[in-house]
Nucleic acid binder design. Structure first.
Lengths: 294, 294
DNA sequence: GCCATTGTCTGACCTTAGTCAGACGATCAC
DNA sequence: GTGATCGTCTGACTAAGGTCAGACAATGGC
């Protein structure tokens, strides 16, 4: 079974590398070599403020020296504009110039043409099947390659994730975190607590934290999955990961609370072996309480 | 609609290049750079006779000088054995040595591990969804990138395709081509006839020919699609292509015959606008006759 | 037997991609 | 204010990937 999955992935890899990869390289190479083209493409994805060099480095996974050189070549061609970030003058912000946007648009068109020419020989029904299959594969490959990492709850990624979390429950239940946020953050560090963020392309797509309850049990809090990512099994994976770390830290009981309208979350907790218990805290927003013995 | 297909393809491309492509490169690079590794891999796909240099060049799409150099480096490492082909001493046949097979196997294992590690974070159900999606995408991408080209009916690819065709109808209907094969081949060249082969990875996966009937109509013959490729729309595409060329050559009527057990073929002809007519030839194997006005 | 063609190889050459060590200014913690 | 750290850049270097023109032997067509 496992072998069959691997075999399919490998077969697909071969097909992809030969048929699309080759085309892809040629499409990006409109006069410019691949490196600069990819960079141009990536810069164009940023908002009006542009991107910092560091962001680009992470998104593209490039060496700092190499990236710097690539930027210089784009700058020499008048395609980008690099200037210090006013809030931190060590950082530099990169933005497309007018010419850069034009070049980027041309690249975009070439890429679009390429994609169209790939599906052109197919019938409409086949095209739909292919599109559906690729969309599924895309979602799952992204989900499979999400990075789970323990970071400080005050790390920008954590803050972004928790802000999204609070915005969401604020909208749904009128919940307002107030100052509790900061106190909690502190509890989720040190020897007893921790915080985990799942990132994809450097963006936080899920998070969850653990702190110690007065009676010595661990409590999972702030568990959140980005709306676009629900249904990809990310929640279950994150939960599993949190439990693994909790176990390593010597806990043997985990508790958590949730609202009774979050049916999918409740179902997931139950599938993961949690059972309902009595109210163990005074969280006004919570309606259901769960516990699991590790 | 069309834009949605292209957008999905592009989105997938981006995901693929970032997540799998990068890993893929690293996996193949076991000490050896990518080029030699891919070559090693490709040589290992051939049968015991090995592959000719030309075959490898086509399958990998490499420059002849470059390939020659790559071969030399593998040869220097004692991984392959290159010697003249006894039937045509201009050609050279490449075969893996014992060490080559070992190296190739190691590569294979790494690739397998990589594929497994990609799907590892997913649940079994997700793995199945991914596998299914990739298999579908694989088939359709292959189908979309099949090359249709007009070649002589005596070209090795044509001969291979027709041999497969005759073997198949021989098995199903006890049909024996006898000498008719050669005469027909001649009719499918020159100004009045032609022969088209569809190839994928250099292998013939479908074929079809056209010759002129005594009354001036065109007749499609030897239309065949490889068993593994049925259901991918290749037959319809080939038929459309043949019709296009037929029209260019100034014909305005096309006819063809088939056996009544080939239900799928018949359905395809009907979908393509062919209508049944009376027997117009003395082909003992035929039970149905069709015509289409272009 | 001759000439054109085919199949492969060699040498010379070029671009792209990427690494590494260190320089240098800006910022942060105290 | 100072030392540590951060963020970016520069210079020097290397390997990989690839192109092109021609050499040369084997083969096929006539």
């Amino acid at each position: 079974m496992a072998d069959q999955h691997a075999a399919t992935v490998r077969r697909f890899n071969r097909t992809y590398t030969q048929r699309i990869g080759a085309l892809d390289d040629s499409f990006l190479g409109t006069g410019r070599p691949l490196g600069p083209s990819r960079l141009l493409f990536e810069i164009g994805l940023s908002d009006d403020d542009g991107a910092t060099v560091r962001e680009l480095r992470e998104r593209l996974g490039l060496d700092s020296g190499y990236l710097s050189r690539l930027l210089r070549s784009l700058e020499a061609d008048g395609l980008v504009d690099v200037r210090p970030d006013p809030t931190d003058r060590r950082r530099r912000r990169v933005r497309l110039t007018g010419r850069g946007r034009t070049a980027r648009r041309r690249l975009d068109e070439r890429s679009e043409d390429l994609a169209r020419s790939l599906v052109a020989p197919l019938s409409e029904r086949q095209r739909e099947r292919l599109t559906e299959a690729l969309a599924t594969a895309d979602l799952l490959v992204r989900a499979a390659t999400v990075q789970l990492q323990e970071v400080s709850p005050t790390d920008p990624r954590s803050v972004a994730a928790m802000a999204a979390y609070f915005a969401e429950i604020g909208e749904r239940f009128g919940f307002e975190p107030g100052d509790a946020w900061l106190e909690d953050a502190e509890a989720m560090t040190g020897p007893d607590g921790f915080f985990v963020v799942a990132t994809s392309d450097g963006e936080a797509v899920a998070c969850g934290g653990v702190h110690r309850l007065p009676d010595g049990a661990a409590e999972i809090k702030r568990m959140w999955v980005h709306g676009d990512w629900r249904g990809a099994g990310l929640g279950a994976r994150l939960l599993r990961h949190l439990e693994d770390v909790v176990r390593d830290r010597g806990y043997d009981v985990v508790r958590l609370d949730t609202n009774d309208t979050l049916l999918e979350a409740i179902a997931m907790y139950e599938r993961a072996g949690y059972h309902a218990i009595e109210r163990y805290n005074d969280n006004p927003w919570a309606r259901r309480w769960f516990e699991k013995t590790l």
